[in-house]
Amino acid sequence: MSAPLIEVEHLTMRFGGLIAVDDVTFSARPREITAIIGPNGAGKTTVFNCITGFYKPTAGRLTLRADREYLLERMLGHEIGQKAKVARTFQNIRLFPGMTVLENLMVAQHNKLMLASGMTVFGLFGLKSYRDAETAAIEVARRWLERINLVADADRPAGELPYGAQRRLEIARAMCTEPRLLCLDEPAAGLNPRESAELNELLISIRDGDGIGVLLIEHDMSVVMQISDHVVVLDYGRKIAEGPPADVQRDPAVIRAYLGTDEGDPDA
């Protein structure tokens, strides 16, 4: 087993009096899909927002181990994407709707291209080194468009794509940042069974082919059971179980959280 890619230790997040995440500890490995599951309001997205720098955790450590150790809780929001190379998608898709599909993927390669354009100066004068870098970036984008089956739509505004295609595009856009860790917030939400199956394939190919770690928030248990290697279960902000999918599925605490106890929430 490989060393963990990201270690979340004693993560706690408070909003005023509300404790959204309470002393959660887990880790995720490269070349594995780690699923975070739990009923609504369990704090899953809050964990993501802490990892990707949108919230500053109240307490706890978030360590990403790669070429060096990155202490994510001390980094600014955009640095986590730029330096630690953590990419994410959003529960309610956040593309750049007025820009084309290709442009969305080019924006994702911003930092690389920015360097190549000599912070814009070389680019303004149209130097060859920049033009080559741009061609290469377009090539990267084209490969991703092939993988998500959107080559024909490359020059259409992203906002015009059907829902399922937008989901795939958002994942491709995150992948174009060349991340070490990809965080997906309910990628299968709203997809039909066929699209959902395609998504599973895509995620598996990302795990095995691109060899990065994937963190996945998912409600659809069939997706979780099929593709995840490791499952973390949250309930009311606490971790109640962790382990391989098959074990977690049988865990009494998990069953209680999902099906509810007498005083619990039955439709969660």
Binding site: T52, G53, F54, G77, H78, E79, I80, G81, Q82, K83, K85, A87, R88, F90, R94, L95, F96, P97, G98, M99, E103, M106, V107, A108, Q109, H110, N111, L113, M114, S117, M119, T120, G123, L124, R173, A174, T177
Partner: peptide
Amino acid sequence: LPVGRAWEALREDETACKALGIN
């Protein structure tokens, strides 16, 4: 150029830009 595309992307969605590592 990348900077110009980033301007337009910021106009469209600043949060998504941050997630992509754009300052």
